[in-house]
Simulated assay, not measured.
Amino acid sequence: MTKTLNIQNLKCSGCANTILTKLSNLDKVSGVTVDVENNSVTFDYQDDFALHEVKETLKSNGYPEEGENNPLVTKAKSFVSCAIGKMN
């Protein structure tokens, strides 16, 4: 199945690189693409557990789904993830 999620805190190619790396390492997830302009990530997943795992991975790295709580701590995580993505 293919899914597109609109996410928060996606700012640049560094963020996109981190998201690509983190999600590509998940089992049962493939074909990850990130659209910085539209603040979205698209991917193929095999089951509901994989979808849940993607959402949790995004959230734990500072990129919660649109409409979810986005406190300052989460925004700070996205800045760290972005910096790591720029270095890789």
Rank of each mutant, 00 (worst) to 15 (best):
S78A: 15
G67H: 11
L58P: 10
T57S: 14
E53Y: 10
S13I: 08
V34Q: 07
I84Q: 11
K55M: 08
A76P: 01
K86G: 12
K77R: 13
N17Y: 08
N88T: 09
S40Y: 00
N6S: 07
T57G: 02
K75C: 07
K77P: 01
K86M: 11
N69G: 06
S81W: 07
I19M: 02
K75A: 13
V36S: 01
L5T: 01
L26Y: 06
Y63A: 02
A76K: 15
C82G: 06
D27C: 03
S60N: 15
Y63H: 05
T42R: 05
V29F: 02
N69M: 13
L58Q: 09
I84W: 11
C15D: 07
E68H: 13
D27W: 03
S78H: 07
I7N: 04
F49Q: 13
F79N: 11
K3Q: 13
Q46F: 05
S24W: 08
I7R: 10
K28E: 12
F79M: 14
L26H: 06
K3F: 09
G14A: 09
N25F: 07
V80A: 14
V80G: 02
F49P: 01
Q46E: 10
E65H: 04
G62C: 03
N6M: 11
Y45E: 00
N88E: 07
Y63Q: 05
I7M: 05
L10V: 06
T74M: 12
A76G: 12
M1A: 03
E56N: 09
K59W: 10
E65Q: 14
G62P: 09
N9P: 00
G62H: 11
N17C: 05
S13K: 05
H52K: 14
N6Y: 10
T74H: 08
A16Y: 07
L23H: 10
L23D: 04
S60Q: 15
N6H: 14
K59R: 13
S40F: 02
L23P: 11
L23I: 09
C12P: 00
N25C: 04
M1Q: 03
N38F: 00
L26M: 01
E68F: 12
P64R: 12
Y45Q: 04
P64C: 10
V41H: 00
S30V: 01
V54K: 05
Q46H: 04
E56I: 11
L51V: 08
S13F: 04
K75S: 09
Y45I: 01
Q46W: 08
Y45N: 04
S40M: 03
T18I: 04
Y45F: 15
N69H: 14
S40N: 05
Y45H: 15
T33R: 11
T33P: 04
H52S: 14
M87P: 07
N17K: 15
Q46T: 03
N38H: 12
V34S: 04
T18P: 05
S40P: 02
N9D: 08
T4N: 08
E53R: 14
V41P: 01
F43P: 00
K3L: 01
L72D: 15
